[in-house]
Design a protein around this nucleic acid. Structure first.
Length: 824
RNA sequence: GCCCGGGUGGCGAAAUUGGUAUACGCAACAGACUUAAAAUUUGUCGACCGCAAGGUCAUGUGAGUUCGAUUCUCACCCCGGGCACCA
């Protein structure tokens, strides 16, 4: 659209019929950006890098609702400003597409997950593209691409090599509906996080990743300090750090051994308990073992009530995890009659009990009970009439030195890594009768997921892959004898645990990431996504990253330096947006009706970025009005062109632009109010984008636009300055107006303005006058005026005098450039 | 129960080394324009008293510190989130 055409449109109808055609303009610029490749990332040693990353989406069949892009818009705003500030920016996007939801959806739709995922990805990309996001799509990744999961499998092999992956035959959490084993992290209140089914315990052979080996580092690095800047290494919300601390659950305490006796003679066996309260050792009145504790079975021959104990153990096995761990449930238990435990502190013999209130897989599976100092022990003692002994507390360190060993325990459990499902990365190992478990040689990666007819879960504890004989039967890489592939697949979280590295070097076939590339781009400077990933994705990714650091693949100990979580956008009814509630707002509709720029401005303006806020299409019209006001301001700039001297002719437009730091240095005295406000806005918008306070950045842009509207005229420089600081939020309209002003290159590769500090200094300040703490008047004074003068002026104001008449002034406080406080 | 956030107009929210509470936006009300409506535009908009000038009260509740508190301290209430029979 040309300036002239715009003007004639306007005059022909007295007012613009369609103020601004967002559909045509946004499409035009999206095509323009794609063609000119201005968002392509490139390593540039001369430029500082900025790596900004979104938690990539899971391309479900439902498509995006307006809540999803909120985080993407935020990273887009930041990356656009950083690019304009001269950084070489990496802002990539990809898709996390393995896992249960895609598979279940495919089963429902009776399609193949691979085909379904391809369809969904296409749809997601389209939805993202019309929002005008500046992704470098040449780096797009997909976790289900064999060229991608080759390296997911490679990482597994390295974990195996270092002894951090091993097979274990133990009871694990099993979801009977999804028919697969689950990690601790996949369970919410005893239910499968995906389908809400109560999980069961099932004894199965499983691949386990020893994340607990990293528990201490995962915990302590949350509070690590960057040695160069002496600021915290991780600029993360405290709530997420705290969630991880809770999840890792470090407890410092002591192991204390109680000798077992039978009829006064030692059995040469100990019960080892874990306690965080060795200072209460003198208050122990009994000892409790978990029903699964190996000593319980061993002691059965020694005790007089073995039948009773056996019955208790079988009964507790039948209970679900939820029933067992319900703190409100009445305590149950049984005494091991005939044996006693000896308290090492006072050599006292105390009874030994078995109860399911003691967890088998935490600490040692055995506790010393101090009913006087522990609520649970007190409940148990009351129920079974056990003695309670009030004691004076001892010194913790001394007690540990005398009677036990210092030890640290974590709540974090190792990562159950096998899934008995089809749609995941095959675990790259081969089982040979002769050689045992043999890793697939790295040169044979990727182990591709075969296409199958039936991929529905079997429920037998075996993956559907087990039925594909042709795929399963292989030669042993070691002895060349007949062998079988591992048929379990990896959990959904595998591929997302390292994808931030693959973006740095997506086409590399020789290595996970080229060392030079990694050194340039790592770490991720800003990472944005949902808070629900606090204790899963963000813990797994940190674990793998630290492991990759240990084996020399990456140069940083932490993957994500600054983290911010997105506040959910709720439905208009303030419930979670969901098909079920019929409150889903589709971004495609919003973009079609109001434009992408309006959607972007609205989502950034709604409220504090990390806060959960309900969507309101009604409120969004304010953002559309703002965009239209900007559009109309152009007329003001154009009309100035009629007057000679105010606007340069197109010929020297190129020479005058870009105008990086608003070069015409007008002395503050003579600069217009608009210029002052603009410079203040440059400062505010720059600082607010940096601090992710998008709502107040837009507020200051609105104030600036309102002032420009009121002003007699708007100069080209002023308008260009406004467009630049608005560009990250509203990239289409700003590029359009920028080009209408005669600029040939996109505004998004122009230089970000710097404010002139002299320009934002006030020469006059309003002084407030308070009497007894109440505001009674105010007056203008020159900045840094003398205190005496300020005080006298304040006292002379008529509205102030009224309150001083006939009163004695007890005290006067003068705060320079702010206020005078008089006490009478 | 433990831990982390938060509570300000009709609504989303601003305001930090303690210094004019309610910026910006939505809604609402009144006027202009229009045959009319929409759109646009001008103005009003925390509550209460008052014709007005003006006054009193207001940032979850109650105390405290201070010339002055949304901001600091103490106690409590409520909402959101994490963990939870973890010894």
């Amino acid at each position: 659209m040309k300036k002239g055409a715009n003007n004639s449109d306007t005059s022909a109808q007295g007012r613009p019929a369609q103020l601004y055609n967002h559909l045509a303009i946004e499409k035009k610029w999206q095509e323009n950006w794609a063609a000119s490749k201005i968002y392509k990332s490139a390593e540039d040693a001369k430029k500082g890098k900025y790596y900004v990353l979104d938690m990539f989406p899971y391309p479900s069949g439902e498509g995006l609702h307006v809540g999803h892009p909120k985080g993407y818009i935020a990273t887009d705003v930041v990356s656009r400003m950083k690019r304009m500030q001269g950084r070489s920016v990496l802002h990539p996007m990809g898709f996390d597409a393995f896992g249960l939801p895609a598979e279940n959806y495919a089963i429902k739709m009776k399609t193949n997950p691979a085909d379904q995922v391809a369809k969904n990805v296409m749809r997601f990309k389209k939805q993202l593209e019309i929002i005008g996001l500046d992704y470098d799509w040449s780096r797009e990744i997909n976790t289900t691409d064999p060229e991608y999961y080759r390296w997911t499998q490679w990482i597994f092999l390295q974990l195996l090599k270092k002894g951090l992956a091993h097979e274990s035959y133990e009871p694990i959490n099993w979801c009977p509906v999804d028919k697969t084993g689950l990690a601790n992290e996949d369970i919410e209140n005893g239910r499968c996080e995906r389908c809400g089914t109560l999980v069961e315990k099932k004894l199965m052979k499983q691949w386990i990743l020893k994340i607990t080996d990293y528990a201490d580092r995962l915990l302590s690095d949350l509070d690590a300090v960057n040695t160069v800047s002496s600021k915290p290494l991780l600029d993360w919300p405290e709530s997420i750090k705290e969630a991880q601390r809770n999840w890792i659950g470090k407890s410092e305490g002591a192991l204390i051994k109680f000798k077992l006796q039978q009829g006064g003679t030692s059995l040469n066996q100990n019960i080892e308990v874990f306690t965080t309260r060795p200072d209460t050792l003198f208050g122990v009145t009994y000892v409790v073992l978990a029903p699964e504790h190996p000593l319980v079975a061993q002691l059965l021959p020694q005790i007089t009530n073995d039948k009773e104990v056996e019955a208790y153990i079988s009964a507790s096995k039948l209970e679900t995890e939820i029933e067992r761990t319900d703190a409100k449930k009445e305590k149950t238990g049984v005494e091991l009659r005939g044996v006693t435990a000896v308290n090492p502190a006072n050599n006292e013999e105390v009874p030994v009990w078995v109860s399911d209130y003691v967890l088998a897989d935490y600490g040692t599976g055995a506790v010393m009970a101090v009913p006087a100092h522990d609520e649970r022990d007190a409940d148990f003692a009351k129920k079974f009439n056990l003695p309670v002994r009030e004691i004076k507390l001892e010194d913790i360190d001394e007690m540990i030195r005398k009677f036990g060993n210092k030890v640290v325990k974590y709540k974090l459990r190792d990562w159950v890594f096998s899934r008995q499902r089809y749609w995941g990365e095959p675990i790259p190992v081969i089982r040979c009768d002769g050689c045992g478990v043999v890793p697939v040689p790295e040169k044979d990666l990727p182990v591709k997921l075969p296409k199958v007819e039936s991929y529905e879960p079997t429920g037998t504890g075996e993956s559907p892959l087990a039925a594909i004989d042709k795929w399963v039967r292989v030669k042993c890489p070691k002895c060349k004898g007949p062998a079988k592939r591992e048929t379990n697949t990896m959990p959904q979280w595998a591929g997302s645990s390292w994808y931030h590295l693959r973006y740095m070097d997506p086409d590399n076939k020789k290595a996970l990431v080229d060392q030079k590339m990694e050194k340039y781009w790592a770490p991720v400077d800003l990472y944005i996504g949902g808070a629900e990933h606090a204790t899963r994705h963000l813990i797994y990714a940190r674990f793998w990253h630290k492991f990759l650091y240990d084996i020399g693949v990456v140069s940083t100990v932490e993957p994500f330096i600054k983290l911010q979580s997105v506040g959910l956008i709720m439905g208009e009814d303030d419930r979670k947006m969901s098909k079920r509630f019929g409150n889903v707002v589709n971004p495609d509709d919003i973009v079609a009706r109001f434009g992408a720029d309006t959607l972007r401005v609205y989502e950034m303006f709604m409220g504090p970025f990390d806060q959960q806020i309900a969507w309101s299409t009604d409120s969004m019209v304010g953002s559309r009005r703002f965009i239209e006001k900007v559009w109309k301001l152009m007329e003001k700039v154009i009309s100035d062109e009629v007057h000679p001297g105010t606007l340069s002719a197109p010929a020297d437009a190129a020479a005058r632009s870009p105008s990086p730091s608003f070069s015409p240095k007008v002395p503050p005295e003579s600069s217009s109010d608009v210029t002052k406000i603009l410079h203040r806005a440059v400062k505010k918008v720059t600082e607010d984008i940096e601090g992710l306070k998008f709502n107040t950045a837009i507020s200051s842009l609105m104030i600036t636009v309102n002032e420009m509207e009121k002003a007699e005229s708007v100069s080209r420089e002023q308008f260009e300055l406004l467009l630049k600081i608005l560009a990250p939020f509203a990239p289409h309209i700003t590029d359009e107006l920028w080009s209408q002003l005669g600029n040939e290159k996109s505004i998004h590769i122009s230089e970000w303005p710097k404010y002139d500090p002299a320009m934002i200094v006030e020469t006059e300040v309003r002084i407030i006058v308070q009497i007894n703490g109440k505001v009674r008047g105010s007056f203008m004074a020159t900045k840094d005026a003398e205190q005496k003068f300020i005080e006298e002026t304040a006292k002379s104001l008529p509205e102030v005098k009224k309150w001083l008449d006939g009163k004695e002034i007890k005290k006067v406080v003068v705060v320079p450039n702010r206020l005078v406080s008089i006490v009478v």
